[in-house]
């Protein structure tokens, strides 16, 4: 019990003193997850929209594959990315293994299906009259699609936040492809795992508290956006 209390006390000291090592780990975690989410949005949102708005061949199959991807075990993703990026792998020449770039790729693979699937659902659920209204007001096909996507903005943002929640809390894949190298690829989750192993609870608890705080913020944002989408309160008015 003393160890736990002492751990919490030291953790609070680290947080309040804005310990440089702690800040560096948090900053890298946020950078990696933000980059992965941004890429997932760039790739996943257009694909989700395309699947929702166009009658593509094999659409059902593609959606099944993407929905399966939402439940991918992170260690399997870690293994797959490791094999791709290892020296003898097909992308070995890029020398990305044990770099933040490899961690971004792993997190991208985890977040892409979530963004794609939730964007697709959000866009499919937009009332068809919105598309017709755009048509009768003179929209060309691209403007029509953008109008429908804009109407689905809450659902799309919810998808982005759900994906962010998954990647920030993930440890298995990033530890395998990032290597948990101090000052280079060490992020919050991997540090917690390592420091707990070493019996060094101060930093682990401090990061645990911050990670929980971050998860809480992500969840509040998630629920707020869902509520805004349902009730339309506090609407974000596009210009």
């Amino acid at each position: 019990m003393d160890t736990i209390l002492q751990g919490f006390s030291s953790a609070f000291k680290l947080i309040t003193a804005l310990d440089p090592e702690l800040l560096k780990i948090i900053w890298l975690s946020l950078q990696v997850s933000a980059a992965a989410l941004l890429l997932a949005l760039i790739l996943g949102l257009p694909l989700g929209a395309l699947l929702a708005l166009k009658r593509l061949p094999l659409r059902g199959l593609i959606l099944s594959v993407i929905n399966t991807g939402m439940g991918l075990p992170p260690v399997v993703v870690g293994l797959f990315v490791y094999l791709l990026l290892s020296r003898s792998g097909p992308l070995g020449f890029m020398e990305l293994l044990y770099t933040p770039g490899a961690m971004i790729i792993a997190q991208l693979i985890l977040s892409f299906p979530i963004v794609t699937s939730l964007s697709h659902t959000a866009i499919v659920n937009v009332n068809p009259i919105i598309r017709q209204a755009a048509q009768v007001l003179g929209a060309n096909p691209l403007q029509e699609a953008l109008t429908v996507i804009r109407e689905a903005r809450y659902g799309i943002m919810t998808g982005g936040i759900a994906a962010l929640g998954r990647v920030t809390a993930e440890v298995g894949a990033v530890i395998m492809v990032g290597g948990n190298i101090a000052g280079y690829t060490r992020v919050m989750t991997t540090t917690i795992a390592l420091e707990t192993d070493k019996g060094n609870f101060d930093l682990a608890i401090a990061l645990g508290i911050i990670l929980l705080g971050l998860s809480l913020m992500i969840n509040v944002a998630f629920r707020t956006l869902q509520k805004m989408g349902r009730t339309g309160s506090g609407v974000i008015l596009w210009d």
Partner: peptide
């Protein structure tokens, strides 16, 4: 773009 239709359900945009 020279013609238009008022739909029975209007189709109000959420803005």
């Amino acid at each position: 773009r020279r013609i238009t239709l008022l739909l029975p359900g209007v189709g109000v945009f959420n803005t």
